[in-house]
């Protein structure tokens, strides 16, 4: 099995999801089945094939480097769960 509970715990930490231990086992087997299924891509010959970077051919547009929007902090924080004035507030990170 490529994905065991240890891997699930590691990936859950990377993804910042507080996965309880009793969910790790079932997720490990589900994720393992999905990964085993996508392994079939190894059959495809992709030597000298460029990875797709843009799905339609288009030239990136340039624009002048200037501020075109903003100046409304009250709108920016309007949906914040716990704003303090015009700031987002979070649990203390520095002792």
């Amino acid at each position: 099995m490529a994905i065991d509970t240890k891997t699930v715990a590691r990936v859950a930490h990377l993804a910042r999801i507080a996965l309880p231990e009793d969910r790790q086992e079932s997720l490990a087997s589900e994720l393992d089945a999905i990964v085993a299924w996508v392994e079939q891509l190894s059959e495809v010959d992709t030597d000298n094939v460029q990875p797709m970077s843009s799905v339609v051919e288009m030239t990136a547009l340039w624009r002048e480097d200037k501020v075109t929007d903003g100046g409304y902090p009250e709108k920016v924080v309007a949906n914040a769960p716990d704003p303090v004035g015009d700031f987002f507030a979070v649990p203390k990170v520095v002792e």
Binding site: V11, A15, R16, A18, L31
Partner: peptide, 24 residues
């Protein structure tokens, strides 16, 4: 902890599954 608890409580099973696959 706040991030991880929010994301566990807020995302449903399928979304968690896909975020984990994507992260992996």
């Amino acid at each position: 902890e706040m991030y991880a608890n929010t994301r566990y409580d807020g995302f449903g099973d399928e979304v968690q599954r896909r975020v984990l696959i994507g992260t992996y």
